[in-house]
């Protein structure tokens, strides 16, 4: 089975892209990875449509985890998940973990072939240390 995908959602496209760069450098290419940042006008913020599209780019039948930054990024990500088709919705989880560290840890766990629940758990445990 292919590995769980990772999506990085930040208010800032630079933060999201930079975090994705770190994941690629530390974990490599085998994990599906996508990032998104910025509001629909290109300013700081998040965009439900863009989050849905990032989930699509990082899609894996094993599921996808999201790493999100402040408030609205989480609310918009939850909305994006709810608007996914029924067969995908249950396979997408938000990790309660810091964006950069969480993304690297989640991708490392995903690269080992773990389930979406275990990938989230590992990212969240790392942040609880």
């Amino acid at each position: 089975m292919e590995s769980v995908g990772v999506v990085i959602v930040s208010h800032s496209p630079k933060v999201a892209e930079g975090a994705a760069d770190m994941v690629r450098q530390m974990v490599g290419e085998e994990v599906p990875l996508a990032w998104t940042g910025g509001n629909p006008s290109g300013g700081l913020g998040t965009d439900v449509g863009q989050i849905m599209s990032a989930i699509d780019r990082a899609w894996s039948d094993a599921g996808v985890v999201l790493l999100v930054d402040l408030g609205g990024a989480e609310t918009n990500s939850e909305m994006a998940i709810e608007m996914l088709p029924d067969e995908r919705r249950g396979k997408v989880l938000i990790c309660n973990a810091p964006v950069v560290e969480g993304a690297v840890v989640a991708a490392t766990e995903a690269a080992g072939g773990s389930s979406v629940d275990l990938v989230r758990q590992t990212a969240e445990e790392y942040s609880a240390r």
Binding site: N39, P40, S41, G43, G45, T46, D47, V48, G49, G71, G72, T75, N76, E78, M79, M83
Partner: peptide
């Protein structure tokens, strides 16, 4: 509103 607002208010007012 959900798709266009871009902050937490989008999902909240949209909902």
């Amino acid at each position: 509103l959900v798709m266009k607002v871009g902050g937490a208010s989008g999902p909240l007012y949209g909902t």
